Computed example of a mutant assay.
Amino acid sequence: MHRSGAVMAWNVFKFCTALRGLGSIMILLVLAIIGVTYYAVVLCNYGPALLSAISGSATTTTGAVGPITALFLLLLFHALLAMLLWSYFSVVLTDPGTVPPNWRPPSPMDEERGETSPLTGPEFASQPLQPGPLNGTASPRVRYCRKCNQLKPPRCHHCSVCGRCILKMDHHCVWVVNCVGALNYKYFLLFLFYTFLETTLVTLSLLPNFIAFFSDVEIPGTPGTLATTFLTFVLNLAFALSVLGFLIMHISLVSGNTTTIEASAYEKKTSPRWKYDLGRKRNFAQVFGTDKKYWFIPAYSDEDLRRMPALQGLDYPVRPDAGMQEV
Rank of each mutant, 00 (worst) to 15 (best):
M26H: 12
C44G: 03
A18E: 12
G47F: 02
G35V: 03
I34L: 13
L22I: 10
R20E: 09
S24P: 15
M26N: 13
I27Q: 15
Y46P: 09
Y38C: 07
Y39T: 00
A49V: 05
L19A: 07
Y46M: 02
A40D: 05
G23A: 11
A49I: 04
L31A: 08
Y38A: 08
L28W: 15
I33C: 13
C44P: 05
T37Q: 00
A18G: 13
Y39H: 01
V36I: 10
C44Q: 04
Y38Q: 10
G21K: 00
A18M: 13
A40Y: 04
G35F: 05
N45S: 06
M26L: 14
T37W: 01
I25L: 14
P48Q: 01
C44N: 05
I33P: 08
Y46V: 03
A49E: 03
Y39K: 04
L19Q: 09
G23Q: 11
I33V: 10
M26V: 12
L31I: 06
L22V: 11
S24T: 13
Y39E: 06
L28A: 15
Y46D: 04
V30Q: 13
G21M: 11
P48S: 05
G47K: 01
S24K: 12
A18N: 11
G35H: 07
G21C: 11
L28I: 14
G47Y: 01
M26S: 14
L28C: 15
L28H: 14
L28Q: 13
I25G: 07
L31H: 08
Y39S: 03
Y46S: 04
T37M: 08
A18L: 15
P48A: 02
Y46W: 09
Y39G: 02
L28P: 14
A32V: 06
R20P: 13
I27C: 12
P48V: 03
I27H: 14
L19G: 05
V42I: 11
Y46F: 07
Y46T: 02
A32R: 03
V30G: 13
A49H: 05
V42P: 09
A49K: 02
L28K: 11
A18C: 14
A40M: 01
L43T: 00
L43R: 00
T37V: 00
